[in-house]
């Protein structure tokens, strides 16, 4: 099985302070730690596990500047066979469709049975690129897959819904599947993996290599644009308790009792 996995380098914002740039269009990246997008990590592990079971190859592809190679090296170190980075000034500030157009061009001449991505990128939270890519490649897609079995030319998947419900579907391959976190347990990066990755060359492709006209990608072609970023202000009157630890917990205990929290 030849599998392509699309991955993205994103900042870890779960515990960091986020500040917005003076022009209001970007966040300040300086002190943020970057890593592979969480659900992409699970997609990579799923692809590698399928390859280990059925044979074949896994290719990881990312759209990004050279710092994105960290993420590709990590993929190569955890069982991916080859990695491609797509980069061009023209790709900058693409919307989801622009990005998908670039990715589609990248795989046009590659052989594949299955394409995986994560469910959503934890920076922009758009969850669009996977299905849009499928559309541009003329493939079908299933999103939020939390269980995957390959049976010849069919993928049997569980699509995760709200409330713990799942739909079981069969998809004819090739197809695009977006992978949900928790589907497997991603392996650690080992020293042997890093060694192996250092010996592999990451291919770099630009717009010309992909025969992409700059008109179809990047900011110019973007149909949805950010006007302004802002830190959301809450309408709710949240009461943050102050004082010593003793005082705060005393007050909170009283509130809990008052609101019916002690039975």
């Amino acid at each position: 099985m030849d599998i392509i996995v699309f991955v993205k380098r994103v900042p870890d914002t779960s515990e960091a302070d986020i500040n917005i740039s003076p022009d209001g269009l970007h966040i300040i990246e300086k002190d943020l730690v970057f890593d592979i997008n969480e659900s992409d990590k699970y997609a990579v592990e799923e692809a590698v596990q399928i390859k280990e079971k059925l044979g074949g190859s896994v290719t990881a592809i990312t759209l990004g500047t050279d710092s994105s190679e960290d993420v590709l090296r990590r993929c190569l170190a955890t069982g991916v066979d080859q990695a491609i980075r797509l980069t061009d000034e023209a790709f900058r500030d693409s919307d989801a469709c622009g990005t998908a157009r670039v990715l589609a061009a990248a795989v046009k001449d590659l052989k594949y049975d299955l394409i995986l991505t994560g469910v959503q990128a934890n920076d922009d939270l758009q969850s669009q690129v996977g299905p849009v890519l499928a559309e541009y490649l003329g493939l079908l897609h299933v999103t939020v897959v939390n269980k995957l079995e390959i049976d010849g030319k069919i993928a049997r998947v569980h699509r995760e819904l709200e409330g713990g419900v799942e739909d079981v579907l069969e998809v004819r391959l090739p197809a695009v599947l977006t992978i949900q976190t928790g589907i497997n347990e991603p392996r650690y990066v080992s020293i042997m993996g890093i060694r192996k990755a250092s010996r592999l060359e990451i291919k770099v492709r630009n717009a010309a290599d992909l025969s992409l006209s700059p008109d179809g990608v990047g900011q110019k072609a973007s149909q949805v644009k950010i006007e302004k970023l802002f830190i959301p202000v809450s309408n709710k009157a949240t009461e943050i308790l102050t004082g010593s630890l003793d005082e705060m917990t005393q007050k909170l205990a009283g509130i809990i009792k008052e609101k019916g929290g002690i039975s």
Binding site: K236, T238, E239, L241, Q250, L252, A253, I255, K257, I262
Partner: peptide, 28 residues
Amino acid sequence: PIFRVADYGIVGDLFQVVPVLKEKIKSL
């Protein structure tokens, strides 16, 4: 983001807050 929807909140390390909170609740 939880502090935008909470009615009440304590900004602190849960490992420090929860043990003391438990004591306060016990006495109540």
